[in-house]
Simulated assay, not measured.
Amino acid sequence: MTTPRFLQIHTLHGYTAALLNRDDTGQAKRLRYGGQDRTRISSQCLKRHWRMAVDDPHALQKLADFVASYRSRELVTEKVIRPLEGRFPEEVVEALEPAFQRLVYGKNADKGKRNRQTLLLGQPELDWLAAQAEEIAGRVSSAREAEEAVKEWAKDKNFKIMSENAALPGGLVAALFGRMVTSDPAANIEAPVHVAHAFTVHPSESENDYFTAVDDLRRDEDDSGADTIQETELTSGLYYGYVVIDLPGLIANCGGDRELAARVVHNLVHLIAEVSPGAKLGSTAPYGRAELMLLEAGDRQPRSLASAYCKAVPHDPAIAREALQDRLQHLDEAYATGEARAHMCVGGELAGIEKLPLPRLAVWAAERVKDAPHA
């Protein structure tokens, strides 16, 4: 067996009469593939629901070594400056904020919230900033003194200093999905978890849903119509999803803690299989679990199996499974890269590949992390 550098995760998920991911016009997102329109779920949508599934038994937040992250344009305002209010003179607190905003958000910070990058910072970085602000506020007594003190303080400060001595400076979310900081490229964190946009294996299936709302307190007996008339799009689909985990990269982003990285992969496998994009919950109940999950561990460049559906197949899990197996067989014959494999399937199976229930499949994935090479 090869030393596993990459873990590839292929899935088939089915959803009926839902609107999982909308574009700027309120319609379902789409992708043109194989000459036909497919319904799409963006990678951003998928990642957000996995990381925000805080009540799930396998939530990332429930890991023993979880370190929180916050994504916002107002991290300094809410996490650094707001805690000082009422404890130090107002003029001092106000004088501190501009320098801290520039440190985090760069030169555009002074132009207001709308011009700041929506940035992801970890709890260790925010704690360090808050402690620095409190220390300065505690040793000055006027706005002028505060401005001079913070100006001198900020001369040699950058993200590297903020993150020193922290195993997960940007938090666990940044360790998985990366971070880009335009004001300080050295603060960027490479994402070891790569997520593709999911798309339907068949042509888009959609219809416009015409619906009404009636005023329960209507007094006009002659008005028998609806108080509100609206229309929305509903789609049904069987989606192919694809995720790649760079195992050495994940271990490195976890501060070299291989055990933590293994627990992260274990939980992430569960989240990918079981957590649905949660749009329009009350009106569509868009809950679904993976019909199929195939895991591959190997040392060669990953490759998607999306081409199994370049020619659209019927909306049928069994046919989609057969198409996936057929494509995998052809790739094996051509490349013979020798990945280790295991899978979970709701009815049926992938021939010649070990079939496991999801809990054991997640354990199988975690064990691959323990065998991965160093970055």
Rank of each mutant, 00 (worst) to 15 (best):
L31W: 13
R71L: 10
Q27Y: 12
Q44G: 15
R22S: 14
Q44I: 08
S72R: 12
L31Q: 10
P57E: 09
D56A: 12
G35C: 08
R22A: 13
R48Y: 02
L46V: 14
L63F: 08
R73M: 12
Q27H: 08
R40D: 01
Q27V: 10
R38G: 04
R48W: 02
D37H: 01
T39L: 02
Q61G: 15
L63V: 06
S43R: 10
P57Y: 07
A53F: 01
I41N: 02
A59P: 03
Q36C: 07
K62N: 11
K47I: 09
F66Y: 15
T25V: 13
S43A: 15
I41E: 04
D37K: 00
Y33I: 10
Q36V: 14
R51C: 07
E74Q: 11
L20Y: 00
S43G: 15
R73D: 06
R51F: 05
N21G: 02
D23K: 06
D37E: 13
L31N: 05
Q36Y: 08
T25C: 08
A59L: 06
D55F: 03
A68R: 12
E74D: 10
L63G: 05
N21A: 02
P57F: 08
L20K: 00
K47Q: 11
K47Y: 06
Q44H: 13
W50A: 03
Y70R: 13
T25A: 15
L46Y: 11
T39D: 01
S43H: 12
Y33Q: 11
S43N: 11
D24H: 14
P57S: 09
H49M: 12
W50H: 03
D56H: 15
R51E: 07
A64G: 09
W50P: 01
K47W: 09
R51A: 07
L60K: 04
D65N: 13
S69P: 04
A18I: 10
L20N: 00
D23V: 05
L60Q: 03
G35H: 03
H49G: 09
A18V: 15
L20P: 00
H49S: 14
